[in-house]
C-alpha cells in the first residue's frame, strides 16, 4: 500500500521546533513530518518545491515571530521566499495556499496545533 504523504513542516529550531516538541496531541504529530532548520531562512525555494514534486500535499514554513529572529532577518527572508514558491505554484497551476508561512514563538504550541489542523482540514479533499 502506498504510504500517505504528510504535510512537511520546516521548523526553526529556535522557536517553532520547541513549540512542536510541546505538542501532546498525537494526531497533530502524525499529520506532519518535521524538518529541523537552524533558521526558517534556510528553507530554500527549490527545496520547498521538491516537497510538492515528491507528492506532499502541503508545506509549512514556521519561523520566529517577526522582529525576533535569532539571525535578525531570516524569517523575513523566508516570507519572501514563500512568496516566490507561491508564484511558482500558481504558474504550475497548483493552489498556492498549499504552502504557508507562519511566525510562532517557542511557547506557541497551541498556535502550532491550530496551524497544522487548519492546513490538514483545508487540504483534506486534495490529499492523497
Amino acid at each position: 500500500m502506498r504510504e500517505k504523504k504528510k504535510i512537511i513542516a520546516f521548523c526553526c529550531e529556535n522557536s517553532s521546533l520547541k513549540a512542536a516538541y510541546a505538542v501532546t496531541d498525537q494526531s497533530i504529530l502524525d499529520a506532519i513530518e518535521i524538518i529541523r532548520l537552524p533558521c526558517s531562512g534556510k528553507a530554500e525555494i527549490g527545496l520547498v518545491l521538491k516537497c510538492f514534486e515528491n507528492g506532499h500535499p502541503g508545506v509549512l514554513i514556521l519561523g520566529c515571530p517577526v522582529d525576533n529572529c535569532k539571525y535578525l532577518t531570516g524569517n523575513v527572508r523566508a516570507r519572501k521566499r514563500v512568496g516566490m514558491v507561491k508564484k511558482a505554484l500558481r504558474e504550475a497551476g497548483i493552489d498556492e495556499n498549499r504552502v504557508q508561512m507562519d511566525f510562532i514563538s517557542s511557547v506557541d504550541s497551541h498556535k502550532f496545533m491550530n496551524i497544522v489542523k487548519e492546513m490538514e482540514e483545508r487540504l483534506a479533499p486534495t490529499a492523497r
Binding site: A88, A92, G93
Partner: peptide
C-alpha cells in the same frame, strides 16, 4: 535550474 525544473515538472503533472 532546480527551481525551474521543479516548476515545470509540477506544471507537466497538472497538465
Amino acid at each position: 535550474v532546480g527551481i525551474l525544473a521543479s516548476t515545470l515538472r509540477l506544471f507537466n503533472k497538472q497538465n
